[in-house]
Amino acid sequence: MHIVVCLKQVPDSAQIRVHPVTNTIMRQGVPTIINPYDLFALEEALRLRDRLGGEVTVLTMGPLMAEDSLRKALTFGADRAVLLTDRSFAGSDTLATSYALSMALTKIGQEFGGPPIVFTGKQTIDGDTAQVGPGIAKRLGLNQLTYVARICDLDPQAGTISVERRAEGGVQVLETRMPVLITMLEGTNEMRRGSLDDAYRAARSQIVKWSAADAGITELAKCGLKGSPTIVKKVFAPQARAEKVQHIASSDLSTDALAANVMAAIFQKQPALEGDLLRFAAGQ
């Protein structure tokens, strides 16, 4: 079975700094990583391949340096990596991104065999939209399974799959027909350590690089900024709250005395809270 995992190279957001004067992002020296949510998708794909046979292809869209993430995915055990890279993709929002990726997935199907399963993470850590997965599913007519916690059953012959899906207030057990798009929930598996063989293979592997034209994209108006219905109107730093913080002095006080002052300050701010707490304590 051929499985494709879409992943994204993202800046390690915990380390992003904002320039205090210009409010621009200081990207220099910020390390990039595979979007952590995508690793759950990759691991799930590798497990299915190990169990059922076949191949795992990883696909990403991004600048040339996104090759780093693809090579990393190969060291974990992916069989093939495709980088979709073209200046015409610059400024893509999620609608334009899902268009380009869906065209590349079609091309992957033609070149390497149609995938019954396309995986993505539930969302990225830089955009946090969770929109590209459903966008790909809709464009390719794949049955959509988001927030999947577990694959319960998969029958390649019958072409059926059933999964547990995290829904509001419970878990839905869904059964559908492949091809499907699955977005994996976090914490559902643990990424393997790649083998030494995989590391050697990854170092030697040729990464497939496709331009828009290579991926069969002829309608450039659907790509990049032109193909994006949303527009970033303004980017700005948040303002401090108008009301200044009331500091509770901590010097020259024992910790217990400080705690008493903090408690008193809380009750002063929220007079009703003391009564609420006493009622709660009385009910204990």
Binding site: G91, L95, T97, T124, D126, T129, I231
Partner: peptide, 18 residues
């Protein structure tokens, strides 16, 4: 929506879309 940060310099993005 902007799944991806659109450019390295937000000011450009804002100006371009103005």
């Amino acid at each position: 929506m902007s799944d991806a940060p659109k450019t390295d310099t937000p000011k450009t993005a804002a100006g371009r879309a103005g």
